[in-house]
Structures are given as C-alpha cells and as structure tokens.
C-alpha cells in the first residue's frame, strides 16, 4: 500500500495490515510508536542503553501480538506504555537485587545524582530533572512522566498503571511535590539565581 495512504491510517489499522503481511506498516508503526516508548523508558530508567533494549522488546511484543490483536479493546499506544512500564519496573527490581549496582535510594546513587546535579553549572536543567525523577518512587515517577511529559490524560494513565483515576491523581500530585522539593534545593546549581539576578537587572 502506498506510504501516503498508510499515513492517514490509525495504529490499529496499521497493525492489522502488518499482520496481513503489508511491508510498509511496520515502518510507520515504528516511526509513530518507538519515539514514545523510548522517551518514556529513558525517563523511567535514566539509562539510554537500557531504554533502547526495553523499547526493542516492547515493539517485539507488539509484532508478536499483532495477529491476535482485537480492535476496540485498548489503544495500541496505551498497551505499549503499559508494556514499557512493566519492563522498566522489572529492570529496576533486577537492579536492586544486583549487589553493587546503584539503587535509587542507595548512598552511591545519591552521591551520583548529587554530582550530576552539581555539574549542571552550565544550566543543563533537563539532566537535573531526569536525575530528580530518578529519585522518586517508581509509581510516582511513572505517573508524573505519563501525565506531565508524555501528556496523557488521567483515565489513560489509570489504564496503563492498572489503577483508579483518583489514585493516579494522588500519585501525580505527590510526585510533583517531591520533585519540586528535590529541585528547590538546587536552584543555585542550575543557574536560577543568575536568572533571577538578570530579571531584576532588566526590570
């Protein structure tokens, strides 16, 4: 099927075409879904290589489930976010079990995070945000990333996390408060004092 024709089709339709042997459907689905899966996994894991492995595995599961996919049960993107969430959770649990591997709440990670944030004198605030996200409990981090970075609505997040909408709202609110507290102590490291000075000078 021509690429222009495929472009306007839904993810679900593309998956059916893939299952029927269409050669272009997988390429388009990858272009649409892989960046989202990779971005989400990267923000959950703070490790690009691991996030790539998770993305590849999640997409592989999508290819394998394609012949059995039933339209109308769930959006493919919701299903994919859920798979990525579970894979990342498993990976982080495995990290915790590995001796000598950095844990979110372990002193060496705290030191590592601290040094990462300290090195942000050049205003690398995104790195600081990711480091701060890494300090949140898993569920809070997932909720905050899905809501405020991936831009999903609470009902969809509830589906992904297998929670009620109220629980999602609670997790998101607590996560944001914790993030603000972590980052508040590092404003000077991140150049916010300089910004404030400049604003005052301009004003």
């Amino acid at each position: 099927m021509p690429r222009d024709t495929l472009d306007v089709l839904s993810d679900e339709t593309l998956l059916v075409l893939y299952a029927n042997g269409d050669p272009g459907a997988a390429r388009l689905l990858t272009a649409r879904l892989a960046p989202r899966a990779l971005g989400y996994a990267t923000r959950l894991l703070s490790d690009r290589a691991e996030a790539e492995d998770v993305t590849q595995e999640a997409m592989l599961r999508l290819w394998k489930i394609a012949p059995q996919w039933r339209n109308g049960e769930a959006q493919i993107s919701t299903w994919l976010y859920r798979v990525v969430t579970n894979l990342c959770t498993d990976l982080r649990r495995a990290r915790r079990k590995r001796p000598g591997v950095a844990l979110d709440d372990a002193p060496e990670v705290a030191a590592s995070t601290e040094s990462a944030v300290s090195s942000l004198m050049q205003a690398d605030r995104m790195t600081a945000l990711h480091a701060a996200l890494g300090q949140l409990p898993d569920r809070q981090r997932q909720a905050v990333v899905l809501r405020h970075i991936e831009g999903l609505a609470n009902p969809e997040i509830a589906q992904i996390m297998d929670l009620g909408v109220e629980a999602v709202e609670s997790l998101t609110a607590r996560g944001k408060r914790a993030l603000a507290a972590i980052l508040a102590g590092r404003k000077a490291d991140l150049g916010y004092d300089d910004d404030a000075d400049e604003s005052e000078a301009v004003g």
């Binding site: 960046p35 971005g39 923000r43 996030a51 605030r125 995104m126 970075i149 991936e150 980052l183 404003k187």
Partner: peptide, 17 residues
Amino acid sequence: DLDNWLAKAAATPVSPS
C-alpha cells in the same frame, strides 16, 4: 518552575537512533 521544566522535557523528543 517545575511546570516549565516538565513542559520543556515534554517538548524535547527522544529520537531512536
């Protein structure tokens, strides 16, 4: 500040290699 940071993160796509 936090909302701004999150908005910037959301606007920064992570592209697959």
